[in-house]
């Protein structure tokens, strides 16, 4: 059975880009969330194997969403995919429970490597 990934990004362009990268490599898309709030709700609804999470988003930012998801499911696997590469941001995301941190613009291979490391 293919592993399922929930994509979280406020930019349609990024959601489509990530969806193309993932589906070409055999992953299934559990859902596409446009902000942190939607991501938390969709996580609980779809129980994906992994979440990709942007940080700067309206309604609820990615770090708050990671905390909310980890509160509900401490085993949740979340990878940050963001343009904000500051050390302080990485530290905050990892402290919240993120497993990896990818800075945009990214290469498809880098995203796939990070995902494969976590869920195969």
């Amino acid at each position: 059975m293919p592993k399922r990934v929930l994509i979280t990004d406020d930019a349609l362009f990024m959601r489509v880009t990530l969806k193309n990268i993932l589906t070409k490599s055999g992953y299934e898309i559990a859902g596409e969330a446009c902000n942190g709030k939607e991501s938390v709700a969709m996580y609980l609804q779809t129980k994906p194997d992994l979440v990709t999470m942007d940080i700067t988003m309206p309604e609820m930012d990615g770090i708050s969403a990671v905390k909310a998801i980890k509160k509900e499911d401490p085993d949740a696997k979340i990878i940050m995919c963001t343009a904000m590469g500051q050390k302080q941001m990485v530290v905050e995301a990892v402290a919240a429970g993120a497993k990896d941190f990818i800075v945009k613009p990214f290469q498809a291979e880098k995203v796939l490597e990070a995902i494969q490391r976590l869920i195969g």
Binding site: D10, M57, A83, M84, Q86, Q88, V103
Partner: peptide, 30 residues
Amino acid sequence: LSALAELANMITGNAASLLSQRGILCDLTP
């Protein structure tokens, strides 16, 4: 339009990362 917005987001985010290396911490708005 989303691609153009994301381009600006990536550039400003990368600039914020470079600023943070100088001890200047900034955040972005969408």
